[in-house]
Design a protein around this nucleic acid. Structure first.
Lengths: 199, 199
DNA sequence: TGACACACAGAACGGCCGTTCTGTACCCTG
DNA sequence: CAGGGTACAGAACGGCCGTTCTGTGTGTCA
């Protein structure tokens, strides 16, 4: 006999279907819709499954008793590079979980802007054309930061450096020249992260 | 008299309150909750406001007639590289809008995993140590794809290539050798995107 | 100073919501 | 092969849902 108390089993494929539905509609559907989404026809069973997902932290309730995504709903398995063969086992791997990429990438939403990267002047810093730069908007920066500056009415992404008591903007690509702005250097913000889509 | 047909006015503060509610609960509340959220007491007026937000693209309906966020609900200002000096003016810039980074990076949540990158074998592809690789989990891939493969019980990120009728894994860094797996090549998934945090 | 549109309030209503309870087929276990 | 747990089906039910319709105060413009 097993000594430990068994928790009721979850239906992982139900959760996946719900997550995909949520990804499309950004809303938790009603029990009847859930039933047809899961391919079952008893609302009572939907109710039971919802209860289990709630117990496991995947679903939650608003103060008004409306069903909503729980804390673990958005977690994506973070696979470590060193992992047993096969799929990473959620039960075994204690690699910590992660909330949404948004939360990971943007700390202060109100001061964060997204800038699409043009050109390849920063390829040596791993910044490619088409990447989305996560920028914390602020008027100053530290030496060595990757900054988004406004030069000739255009955004430009460069390292902030100093040469002979003057601020300069250094590209991470030898094919490009160092930019020595005349007058004040206007900084839009500091790079805080990066997002790239390749498919 | 004005010649142009006036659209009914929106209540911007209503939208903001709803967006804040959604940010907290990840769900659109019912009309009664909306009423108290907006500080009004007539569901009929909620209905009218919802209709206007729907018309403006901020709200939408699921196929099952459930209220859900519309296309413009999540819009976050995307600053274009070529933009007038100063802060990009939301009214003037027609740079298109973007939904959440999550949505942009992951298409099919249930088949997407995150893999933390170790080592610098792919730096020439702009993949650095510590980056979070967005991986679509699937057992096969095309030549030229950046794949996450399982070699010697470890994840490894490489280009998928073919040499003398055999699949090989090519790094994007001349300091590393080409990996020629003996036997079957086990593919965990294909790189679909990347996220990096630098602060 | 009317007329009219706007921004709500309030009540009525049919329907769909989620809950609960009972029933059943199918393992697994001893 | 009896017993119990699991994974559903199905019906009944009270309540809350969103819709619709009517009423009301307030500003605005001719």
């Amino acid at each position: 006999m097993a000594l430990n108390v068994q928790k009721p089993a979850l239906q992982p494929e139900y959760l996946e279907k719900l997550q995909d539905y949520y990804a499309e509609h950004k809303v938790i559907p009603s029990y009847s819709v859930l039933a047809s989404l899961w391919g079952i026809s008893a609302k009572s069973w939907v109710s039971e499954c919802v209860r289990r997902f709630e117990e496991a932290g995947y679903l939650d309730w608003t103060p008004d008793r409306q069903l909503k995504p729980g804390a673990r709903f958005f977690e994506r398995r973070l696979a470590d590079s060193t992992v047993q063969a096969g799929l990473p086992n959620p039960a075994l791997s204690d690699g910590y979980d992660l909330i949404t990429l948004d939360d990971w990438l943007v700390k202060v939403p109100s001061k964060t802007a997204l800038v699409r990267v043009k050109g390849d002047s920063m390829v040596d810093a791993g910044i490619h054309e088409g990447d989305l730069l996560v920028v914390e908007v602020q008027p100053n920066a530290n030496l060595g930061d990757i900054v988004v500056a406004i030069v000739d009415n255009e955004f430009t992404v460069k390292y902030l450096a100093k040469e002979r008591h003057e601020f300069v903007l250094k590209p991470a690509n030898k094919a490009y020249p160092v930019i020595r702005p005349r007058g004040r250097l206007e900084i839009f913000g500091v790079m805080a992260g990066l997002a790239r889509r390749t498919r």
